[in-house]
């Protein structure tokens, strides 16, 4: 995989949400939340069920449009993202309840992550000839690299609907990686996994971050994982920001202990 180097150096702000509020009718999903994600870091977003974590990812990649606040990505400030803009600007994501193309093979699913990288003319695409054929082969090689990286060679041709949940999550990660994202949003990538699968997934996340320099925003309920992987943690509760800092700072925060770590899970 190639790494696209930005003019922004490591440690600079890649994405910032500023005083974002989002509601659905009467339900306030997010209230006045601000935080930032720095280039190259793994940023965890934690909080109890219904805290607004997924909603925040949806705001960042443009699925939800907040009523208030601003989103700054790569220096450009917007009041709302659009999914097409987010994707083309380098934001990729996975979903809490795996959203794959069930009828397609693992290979085709990951290939779909290359959609925006393909630019041969529509006409050629229809016939799979000439420039489009050469392009297809190049992208195919890229995707095979990802498949090797995620150790899923054995299921390349299997329709993903038939795969066990843990593998589906891995394919979904592969599809996001195929986009060569600058910012990768992972919504509970380890939910429903056994210990071994969790360890594999943790390793992939760390490798993606260190080898390719991809910035990662991670929602996760497993505190062990969060504390191990992340550089900084933001804590949400009832749609509000409760704490923000390094894992150690957050662990020591009295509000967090009361409100979140204190509750049995």
């Amino acid at each position: 995989m190639t790494v696209t180097h930005e003019t922004i150096g490591k440690g600079e702000v890649l994405l910032a949400v500023d005083q974002v509020s989002l509601s659905f009718g009467g339900i306030k999903a997010i209230t006045d939340v601000s935080f930032d994600i720095r280039k190259g870091e793994i940023r965890a977003i934690i909080g109890p069920n219904g805290a607004g974590k997924t909603s925040m990812l949806n705001v960042i990649n443009g699925f939800y449009h907040p009523q208030q606040g601003k989103i700054t990505f790569k220096g450009q400030t917007r009041s709302k993202m659009r999914p097409s803009v987010a994707a083309s600007q380098g934001i990729a994501r996975t979903f809490q309840n795996v959203a794959l193309f069930k009828g397609m093979s693992t290979l085709d699913n990951i290939m779909s992550g290359r959609t925006l990288k393909m630019n041969s003319h529509f006409f050629w695409q229809c016939f799979r000839h000439g420039p489009a054929m050469a392009e297809e082969i190049r992208h195919r090689e890229f995707v095979e690299d990802i498949i090797d990286f995620l150790e899923i060679q054995a299921i390349r041709k299997v329709p993903v609907g038939k795969l066990p949940y843990g593998l589906q999550k891995r394919v979904e990660l592969g599809r996001a990686l195929a986009m060569e994202p600058d910012l990768l949003l992972l919504d509970e990538p380890m939910a429903g996994m056994n210990l071994e699968e969790k360890e594999d997934m943790s390793r992939f996340i760390i490798d993606v971050n260190t080898q390719y320099g991809t910035t990662i925003a991670l929602i996760e309920h497993d505190m062990g994982v969060v504390m191990d992987l992340s550089d900084r943690v933001v804590v949400l509760e009832y749609g509000r920001k409760l704490a923000d800092g390094t894992p150690d700072e957050v662990k020591a925060d009295q509000n967090v202990i009361d409100a979140y770590l204190g509750v049995a899970h």
């Binding site: 999914p83 097409s84 994707a87 990729a92 979903f95 794959l100 193309f101 925006l116 986009m179």
Partner: peptide
Amino acid sequence: SHKAALSVG
């Protein structure tokens, strides 16, 4: 999946 399709652009 509409949302997955949107997410890959």
